[in-house]
Design a protein around this nucleic acid. Structure first.
Lengths: 332, 332
DNA sequence: GTGAAAGCGCTAACAC
DNA sequence: GTGTTAGCGCTTTCAC
């Protein structure tokens, strides 16, 4: 439990100045081969390890290699795949990812954002659960780039990587409509989220274009976890008349719906979900798919461009979705 | 893009010394209420934000709030659920998680370990892909606690959270054996991993206890991703005589097997997988289940105990598995 | 209550 | 090639 050796101790042991030791170990500047070897030996002997935070402090400004990610729970495959794509891309550029889960709690998000900024992260990627982001405006003036993912910034100009939620949801509604369904239920996540609102809008657009006006009777919101979703779908199926098809607006809700349908022995209800599922192909679930890892990579690229000095206007990347037709919407 | 204000600038603006500004903002030590307010205003006006790395440098030693996690790819639900459980537990104790993916590459693991240690993380949680860990012995003398998860340390004494791989695999073999299966295939991950070896051992134990000697003919290894696993299962099913049941030793291999079984239209093969699947209940896959999030929480607790000064002998937590019987092993 | 000086571990700048 | 000095942003120590 001895305290960690510093460069000064390595220098003392090898009989050179601190600066020479620094040069020898960092490889920056000229050092005699023999001196270098002596310093290296001393470092090995002491178990010396560079203190990167001290280096970054001295080098000043933007030399940190840390990037923060704020998102919901990593146990949700959407977030973990996003994190995976982001981390890999950053790693290839020598950056490290520090992840913080907000659990969709704005208070946590605020605290964790502060914490990451105090740590002088090089940039921040955020799946925000907050209603507005004006408080971050001051940060941007100090040069910390933000990239918003999945949900756009409000009252703030910043880069964003978003999905075509509206278009995806529209196609999700059109698909059963084309197969003759008229009563299509829709189960959604937290109603305050723009992703949710956009998906409902896209759904509404298709329903209204098909001349269906009563669709709101079959709208259930705030089914934020699998259990709530399962109950919501059960209650939807208990309506009279019952819907003949259900659109679930994200992966957890789809999971809940699958459980509900299985439990109720309902094999003739059509189901279509937003987000691909891990075993969606094996299960045969029709989905509106997209690529969370690709979102992560895009976020990394936007961030890297900013770090390389790009100071152009905020960019907004909208990634497409694609409908994958499987057996849950097959016509019997 | 102006550079970030320092405490000195806040002090200057509010007309006090740096130390008073420090006290006012950190709340440590006595400051007149009025002075405090003046400093706070100046800080707000400048958009001041504490530089936590500078604080930690000055405070010396072990004051960092960073914990590192080294694991395979976060896109694998096993790792992401592990990370989720770990992160939540750490967050409740004011610590932050920095994640690095090794992609099961020892060289990456080594580099990333160095990098995290240079960053002076408070501790390290690692799902190691390396064959031995003697090189970390020096680190432990400097007080950086390590917790090994899923795979034990080799040539190093350290805390570990492991699964009962042998017992779990044994029960996975006994289950189809009890149902009359004699030719049971087994498809495994990288053969160099101890988890894999232990699972094969447990499987072997049950098979040999049942008097079956030729089981190795149906052993396929190094199916490290879903595609490889799918091909492996296809080739297994093509054997003559074909196995009547398959044991897949982790979640991705089970996924591959489900695809292979579905593609080949083979509905009468029994399947049992190690690791629970996201929709395992809906799919009806018999599995040897365990709780990755719980592993993460345990790792956090071991680490926290060390940080609080526990210097007792290395602890080893072995978490149980439990067999969940579902339709893929139902008798027709 | 407040402040001046020193220093955490490192590197930039400028010697020699 | 190598050393000296200063300083990154903060807190500790000890004064007032």
């Amino acid at each position: 439990m001895s305290s960690r050796p510093s460069l000064a101790q390595v220098a003392a042991l090898s009989g050179v100045s601190v600066k020479t030791a620094s040069r020898a170990l960092s490889g920056e500047g000229y050092v005699a081969v023999e001196t270098k070897a002596r310093v290296q030996n001393a470092a090995d002997e002491l178990g010396y390890r560079l203190n990167r935070t001290a280096r970054e402090l001295r080098r000043g400004g933007n030399t940190s290699t840390l990037v923060g990610l704020l998102s919901g729970d990593l146990a949700n495959p959407f977030y973990s795949r996003l994190a995976s794509g982001l981390e890999r891309e950053l790693r290839m550029h020598g950056l490290q990812l520090i992840t913080a889960s907000t659990d969709e709690n704005p208070e946590w998000e605020r605290r964790l954002t502060d914490s990451l900024l105090e740590r002088r992260v090089r940039g921040l990627v955020v799946v925000s659960t907050m209603a507005e982001h004006g408080h971050l405006a001051a940060e941007r003036r100090h040069g910390s780039p933000f990239v918003f993912v999945d949900r756009p910034p409000v009252d703030l100009t910043a880069d964003a990587v978003l999905l075509d939620n509206r278009g995806g949801a529209k196609s999700a509604a059109e698909h059963p409509l084309e197969r003759g369904h008229r009563r299509i239920g829709i189960v959604g996540d937290l109603s305050r989220l723009t992703t949710h609102q956009d998906r409902v809008e896209g759904f509404a657009e298709a329903m209204e274009a098909a001349g269906i006006t009563g669709w709101r009777d079959y709208l259930l919101e705030d089914a934020h976890d699998v259990d709530k979703a399962e109950r919501a779908v059960h209650s939807l199926l208990a309506r009279d008349p019952a819907p003949t098809a259900v659109f679930t607006t994200n992966n957890r809700i789809t999971t809940g719906a699958l459980r509900a349908l299985r439990a109720s022995g309902n094999r003739d209800k059509a189901l279509i979900g937003f987000d691909e599922l891990d075993l969606g192909d094996v299960l045969g679930v029709t989905v509106v798919a997209h690529d969370p890892e690709e979102m992560g990579r895009h976020a990394a690229r936007l961030l890297l461009a900013r770090l390389e000095g790009d100071d152009g206007p905020a960019r907004r990347v909208i990634l497409p979705t694609r409908l994958i037709e499987r057996s849950t919407t097959a016509v019997h």
